[in-house]
Structures are given as C-alpha cells and as structure tokens.
C-alpha cells in the first residue's frame, strides 16, 4: 500500500501540497486529476522521493520515503514513467530497460536483457530492441519507458502525464498498453488530462485543487452527481470536455 498522510510541500513561499491524504492499495488504479499547477506532479515526485516533503508522511509498503535507508526499499517497489520519457540516450532500448535490474536488483545481465526483450515484445517493439532513443518515435520511446519501469517488477506504477508529449495516434498506442496493464491488475497512480481514459481504466479518482485533495471517490461516483456536486470538479470537467 502507498500511504500519503498529511503531506505538505512548499517551494519557497508557494504551498504546493497543503495536507494531502491518499491511500493506494494493491490492485487499484487511481487517477489523479486537477488543473494545471494543482500539485499533481509534485505529489508523484514526493512519492518517489524526488522531492522532500515538509510535513506529513509517505510510506510505500511501510517504507518511509523520507528516511534514506527506507527510500531505496520504497523505490524498489514503485516504478515511475515520466512525461518526457527520460530515457538514457546513450543506451539502446534493451540497455535502458536492463540497467536498473542489473545494477539495483543484481540480475545477471544476460537474463535482464532477455527479460527486457520479452517486455519489448509485449508492447510490440521487438524489432526496435537495439535502437537508441533518438531512433524511436515519441510513442515508441514512451513504450520503452513503460517497459523500463515494469522491468523492476514494481508493486506500483507511478505515471505522470505519460501521453501529454505525444500526438493523438501515439497517445492511443500508449494508452492501450496501460489499459492492458490495468486489466492484469497492475496497481497504478495515474496523473492525466485524458479524462475519458481515466474514467475507463480507474477504480478511483482523486481530485487535487490548489494542493488539497478535494475529492477521492470511486470512478462511477466521481463522474455522477456526487462529483458534480463539487463546484471545482464540475468546472474542471466541463472545461476539459470543451477542449
């Protein structure tokens, strides 16, 4: 379980997370929605330890991410997929995927690369296994990014707007992979602006507004009168649908 409780985070004078509580259990797909600047990315970055929180507590399977010793354990349990892919440009797709298993989990290189090829096959990239990121399209890069996270066999996937740098065609190729992962019971925290997609794969929707979680509801309820009863949510949804 990922447990976020009473988390506060400021950058200088700006409070970005203002007391956030959120729990993600195994098997859930939680979409985090909210307008630009509401703190979604910051929340993800606090969970994977890229940002230090000012107050509160975040644990991943009980490991406290603010304690350096426990952070490394927490990080073994969660895999992050980035908006801009963040691939290592000097490594091929296979090498990108195998790096962390080899270095962190001490998997023999041969085995790690075989597993990497298998993952690439599952996302339809068998032929591009030896390609460098610069030789891949955006959608292909993001599929490599997803494989790289999956290679660590994480209990949780953290995804921050993983399709927003992609054109519609590439977006759908990445989303179909995520939908397949959701179906197999992969636990995901999914920050997105793809409302309809979030609705189709999520078990729950968390809505951030100015650093506060103003809604945390099962998907069906969020998109029903219950969600719409919250003015900020109604406003957000109508605006997103117009775009």
């Amino acid at each position: 379980m990922i447990s976020v409780s009473g988390v506060r985070k400021s950058f200088g004078a700006a409070t970005v997370l203002n007391g956030v509580d959120l729990e993600i259990r195994q098997g859930e797909v939680v979409s985090v929605l909210g307008s630009s600047g509401s703190g979604k990315s910051t929340l993800i970055r606090c969970i994977n330890g890229l940002e230090k929180i000012d107050a509160g507590k975040i644990t991943v399977d009980g490991f406290d991410v603010s304690k350096p010793r426990e952070l490394s354990e927490a990080r073994k349990r969660s895999g992050t997929v980035f908006q801009l892919f963040n691939l290592y440009p000097h490594m091929t797709a296979v090498q990108n995927i195998a790096l962390a298993p080899v270095e962190v989990l001490k998997v023999p290189r041969r085995q790690a690369e075989d597993e990497a090829r298998e993952l690439l096959r599952s996302v339809g990239l068998s032929e591009r296994a030896e390609a460098y990121p610069s030789q891949l399209s955006g959608g292909q890069r993001q599929r490599v990014g997803i494989c790289r996270a999956l290679a660590m066999k994480p209990s949780y996937l953290l995804l921050d707007e993983v399709t927003s740098a992609l054109d519609p065609e590439m977006t759908s190729e990445v989303l179909s992979i995520l939908a397949a992962l959701a179906k197999t019971g992969t636990t995901m925290v999914f920050v997105t602006h793809e409302i309809e997609f979030a609705r189709s794969i999520s078990t729950r929707i968390a809505f951030l507004d100015k650093g506060q979680l103003i809604a945390d509801l099962p998907t069906a309820e969020f998109f029903s009168d219950k969600g719409m009863a919250l003015p900020r949510v109604a406003q957000f949804l109508s605006k997103m649908r117009k775009d």
């Binding site: 330890g49 490394s72 963040n86 691939l87 290592y88 790096l99 962190v104 790289r148 996270a149 660590m152």
Partner: peptide
C-alpha cells in the same frame, strides 16, 4: 535522465 536513474534506485 538522472532523476530517472535515481527513482529506479
């Protein structure tokens, strides 16, 4: 990329 490497431990 360095952030990616960090989050993968």
């Amino acid at each position: 990329q360095l952030e990616a490497a960090r989050v993968f431990g």
